[in-house]
Computed example of a mutant assay.
Amino acid sequence: MSVSDREQLRLDFLAAAGLAEAARAPLPGDASTRRYERLTPPGGPTLMLMDQAPAAESPPADPAWTPEQRHAAGWNAVARLSAGRIEAFAAVAAHLKSLGLSAPEIPALDAPNGLAVLEDFGDALFARVIEDGAEETPLYLTAIEALAALHEAGTPPEVLTGPGGDWPLLTYDETALQGGADLFVDWLPRLDARVAFDAAAVAEWREAWAPIVASGAAGASVMAHRDYHAENLIWLPEREGAARVGMIDFQDAVRAHPSWDLHSLLQDARRDVSPALEAEALDRYFALRPQVDRAAFMADYAGLAALNEARIIGIFARLIARDGKPRYRQFLPRMWRHLNANLDQPALAPVARWFDRHVPVEVRA
């Protein structure tokens, strides 16, 4: 579809939603194929236009596909990503709201064409509010309360229902977890000529991660936002309790280990979270969920956090080397610090030995 045809779809959609006269202001893009505009109707509250052309990415996974079929279909199927489908966003939003959590209302939706009008939560992203001088601890502890509420809701349904139709909530399984880890060995050598991984090194890599991958898949018991961090959470102080955390960018939600969103928040790629705040936030989480075996949980937390950090290093390497986005280089030192710290955990000794053999210390900085 041409740019002009896509724009005509947007215009027709907005007219049908009663927003033909709304002023439109594009928002800065991110690493995805999705785009947003802020809409300002005459005399009304601002809204958001979400625009995600359905054909812009490889297809999402069919729940019945085998690992081989997923690999053949492309990255979205391997990783069990939603391919940005609007119906996924709408179904996850409906589930979150049913639990008393804050996801945007969706006053207008055209799922087949990948368009939605959303409630505008504003610009008070946790990261920006903290930069402007707010105390970070209350915000993070409230984000923990929201996660605890999501986790205490128990095992989510296999199929979510929303205004755009049903959407399967797939498990973040062995194929997805290992596929994410493998981004590291696939892409770091294309960014940094000091490393090269032959077939034997890749086989050793997968063997080292196998227990962590298995534990992560076996522990997949809650809905995971999957991208839960200070750039995706919006402070809504006029609301009460956990609802003060406005959630966005959750269309890739899966059933996953409950540690996943915790380490995404507390071992963030984009901003420093002090060890003291991480410890306080974890204490709050376990206080809210006293039935959880903390020692076993934290072993999984370290392993899956390390895997996620390797995954993110691979993603950033791809964004820099393939997509020409050098700004992601600034985040690599922080991710290496997180990964190196987690590799000190005894359960990660096989992975740590792999890094000692194959990745020079000067690269891991």
Rank of each mutant, 00 (worst) to 15 (best):
R329V: 09
S264T: 14
A302F: 10
A64I: 08
R322N: 11
A276H: 11
Q178Y: 09
T142E: 07
A299Y: 07
A203F: 09
R270W: 06
A25C: 09
W336Y: 12
A302S: 10
Y36S: 10
G84T: 04
W65E: 14
E231K: 14
T171W: 08
D323G: 15
L304M: 15
Y36A: 13
D132G: 13
E278W: 01
K325C: 10
I212E: 02
A53G: 08
N340C: 13
A321T: 12
D186C: 07
A299G: 13
P107D: 07
G180F: 01
L332K: 02
A93Q: 00
D132C: 09
A90R: 03
S274P: 04
I144R: 00
A230R: 00
F126I: 03
E278I: 06
A53E: 14
G303Q: 06
G180L: 05
F121K: 03
A295Y: 03
A341D: 14
L183F: 11
F331Y: 14
R10F: 08
L332D: 02
T137N: 08
P163W: 01
R271N: 02
R284A: 06
A203D: 15
L304F: 04
S58M: 08
F89W: 06
W336M: 10
D323S: 11
T33N: 12
W187P: 02
P290A: 12
E57D: 14
A196R: 11
I313E: 00
I106W: 01
V117P: 01
A93T: 04
A220Q: 03
D182M: 11
S2F: 08
A73M: 09
A108K: 13
S264C: 15
G241Y: 00
R10D: 09
M50G: 02
L47V: 13
P59F: 04
A210H: 08
W209A: 01
G100C: 05
A127Q: 12
A208G: 10
F250W: 01
Q69L: 09
D323T: 13
A73S: 13
G74Q: 07
E238T: 12
Q178R: 15
A108H: 13
V129G: 04
M247H: 02
A217V: 09
T40C: 10
R289W: 00
N113A: 11
L160M: 12
A281L: 04
A72C: 10
P211R: 06
W167V: 07
L319E: 00
A317M: 03
A193Y: 08
L191S: 01
S259K: 02
V222E: 01
A242W: 01
W75N: 05
F355L: 14
A347Y: 06
V78H: 04
L141S: 00
V195G: 02
D186L: 12
R10W: 07
P59D: 02
